[in-house]
């Protein structure tokens, strides 16, 4: 059976690991390198670094953090935030990123997905989608800039378009559930899983180890991104792994 990937997600602002609710109201947690190193040592299958204000200015800082981390972390590292061009991607790949996550720039210019896939391969391109449910229609709209900006793009259709353009994976974050600990938006993940063939990383809302099982078994996530539950030590990678294995969800033995 395939092994579901456990992926700590580290949202970064300036030099700090931060955490918010609904991607807002940010709080400093600590030094991202220290957290990343610990997660690697505990058996994280991959790591995600997301620079959440990178779209605005000064990205050198992120490059430094990525390089320092990549020197001591020997699992794949996905980096996102403010990547607008192949040159931006190249800067991050050169300092040790393995995959590039794009959101805002892909929405503005979907051809960027194809361009990055052509140059670096699809395996390098993670399209990050921030989804917010419209309670009136029951459908999800894609947002940018950490859930602040509307795009009027339907999430499901956008996910399919991203796949067609050459995305290798989709990182799906529920803006509604993110940071709340009330569970993933299972319906969102399941709906997208049925519509695309490429792997899906579920993100936003995990509040218990049971949620991990549920998002894999019921919503068919291929990988799970976990942020504050790990950062605030409400669970740990070994605890998730043991719980998964004892509930017949296959994860990497470590």
């Amino acid at each position: 059976m395939r092994k579901v990937r456990i992926i700590p997600r580290l949202d970064i602002k300036g030099p700090n690991l931060i955490k918010g609710i609904h991607l807002e109201g940010l709080r400093v947690i600590g030094n991202p390198y220290d957290f990343a190193k610990q997660y690697y040592e505990e058996g994280a299958d991959e790591l995600i670094y997301m620079d959440i204000v990178a779209s605005l200015y000064n990205r050198n800082n992120l490059t430094d953090i990525v390089e320092k981390t990549a020197k001591d972390i020997f699992v794949p590292l996905t980096v996102g935030g403010g990547v607008r061009s192949p040159e931006d991607a190249n800067k991050l790949l050169k300092v040790g990123a393995d995959k590039i996550a794009i959101n805002t720039a892909a929405i503005k210019n979907p051809a960027l997905i194809s361009e990055l896939a052509r140059i670096y391969g699809s395996q390098c391109v993670v399209v990050s989608i921030e989804a917010k449910k419209d309670p009136k229609t029951g459908s999800w709209e894609a947002y940018t800039d950490n859930g602040r900006e509307h795009t009027e793009k339907d999430v499901i259709r956008w996910a399919q378009e991203a796949e067609e353009l050459g995305a290798g994976e989709l990182l799906i974050t529920s803006v509604d559930n993110e940071g709340t600990g009330k569970g993933f938006d299972f319906e969102l993940i399941e709906t997208i899983s049925k519509k695309v063939e490429i792997p899906i990383i579920a993100s936003g809302g995990m509040g218990s180890n049971e949620d991990f099982i549920k998002v894999v078994n019921d919503a068919h996530a291929d990988a799970v991104a976990i942020a504050d539950m790990l950062h605030y030590k409400k669970t740990s990678i070994p605890s998730i792994r043991d719980f998964a294995l004892s509930n017949t969800v296959n994860v990497r033995q470590f």
Binding site: R2, K3, V4, Q123, G168, I198, D222, A223
Partner: peptide, 11 residues
């Protein structure tokens, strides 16, 4: 459940 690309860990 087995998506392509194959991304992840295998023994």
């Amino acid at each position: 459940k087995y998506k392509i690309p194959h991304i992840g860990w295998s023994e």
